[in-house]
């Protein structure tokens, strides 16, 4: 099985580990993530004003490029997933928009390509049972908090990969990998996103709340699927530590990193060294 794969800007740079661990995991599970021949940035935000067609052109180009390779395209980054999936729906449902946008990018595209997140690939195409069978190093019951954020879930009618108020897809994967998933109240709350550019105080508060909420529920590691969430969470730890005596930093990792480790990848391949707070001591402590 080959599946067209759109990495997006960040996975080529600061989130390299996210990308590599996923590709290697795919290989271990018997399929290949085939990078799009030509791609550009998706815009990193879906335009919320329906009259902003300009914002649809970049993701439309990505989708048109994907359509030349297959009937589906997968992404790892939550934001890319959100933008591509919503753009795809807009182009599919609204003929007028479609003709303006495709006219502008000078490519034909009708919205027929399916946009699926890598988590959905694992759940629906590979099957978690198969993942379970492929696990070489069970993760020793690490208490892992799956942090979804916004982009995987909302708006439910357009993107939702799972129930938007009580998602479990990531927890389901984590338990297959040998983790003990930790449910925590803030798992679907926002991290502060692009306010990282203007309002670090807000980001520190929101991301800090996510971290505290996870830690209070017993999390030893926080798992995400979005480089921006990962960045914001990591960056906010200092602030949490400041306002909370005895706070211990928790590693914030991509779900593919844990997947990779469980499937037997090396630490380097899984990009564990890239994370600001190292998850390796925890793995060792658990005997992984």
């Amino acid at each position: 099985m080959k599946i067209p794969y759109y990495p997006g800007c960040t996975l080529n740079t600061v989130a390299k580990g996210f990308d590599v661990s996923a590709r290697e995991s795919a290989r271990a599970l018997g399929f290949e993530m085939e990078e799009l021949g030509q791609w550009n940035c998706c815009g990193a935000s879906f335009p919320l004003s329906p009259d902003n067609l300009m914002g649809l052109t970049a993701p439309a180009k990505v989708l048109a490029s994907a359509a030349r390779m297959g009937d589906a395209v997968t992404t790892l980054c939550s934001v890319c997933y959100n933008v591509l999936k919503r753009t795809n729906k807009a182009l599919r449902d609204d003929g007028e928009k479609r003709s303006v946008v495709t006219g502008f990018i000078e490519e034909e595209y009708d919205g027929s390509t399916e946009v699926i997140h890598f988590l959905e690939v694992l759940r629906d195409r590979v099957g978690f049972d198969r993942v379970r069978e492929s696990v070489k190093r069970p993760l020793g019951g690490i208490r892992a908090a799956a942090y979804y954020g916004c982009m995987l879930l909302r708006p439910a009618g357009e993107v939702g990969i799972d129930r938007h108020e009580g998602p479990t897809i990531m927890e389901d994967l984590l338990s297959v990998l040998g983790c003990e998933p930790v449910d925590f109240p803030n798992k679907i709350e926002c991290c502060g996103a692009h306010l990282a550019m203007t309002r670090t105080d807000v980001v520190e508060r929101l991301s800090g709340n996510v971290l505290e909420s996870a830690v209070d529920c017993g999390a030893e590691v926080v798992v995400t699927s979005c480089p921006l969430c990962q960045y914001n969470l990591e960056k906010s730890q200092a602030k949490v530590a400041e306002r909370r005596a005895g706070y211990r930093h928790v590693p914030v990792v991509y779900f593919t990193q844990l997947l990779g480790i469980a499937l037997g990848q090396s630490d380097e391949m899984a990009g564990l060294g890239e994370n600001r707070w190292d998850v390796r001591p925890l793995l060792e402590a658990k005997g992984v």
């Binding site: 997006g8 800007c9 960040t10 740079t13 600061v14 989130a15 940035c41 815009g43 990193a44 935000s45 335009p47 914002g55 980054c77 934001v79 890319c80 996103a193 692009h194 306010l195 990282a196 550019m197 203007t198 480089p227 921006l228 990962q230 960045y231």
Partner: peptide, 15 residues
């Protein structure tokens, strides 16, 4: 330098 590209792209788009 350090922020993920998506933060910058998104921020520029919004602000």
């Amino acid at each position: 330098e350090k922020a993920p590209q998506q933060a910058i792209v998104c921020g520029f788009r919004k602000l």
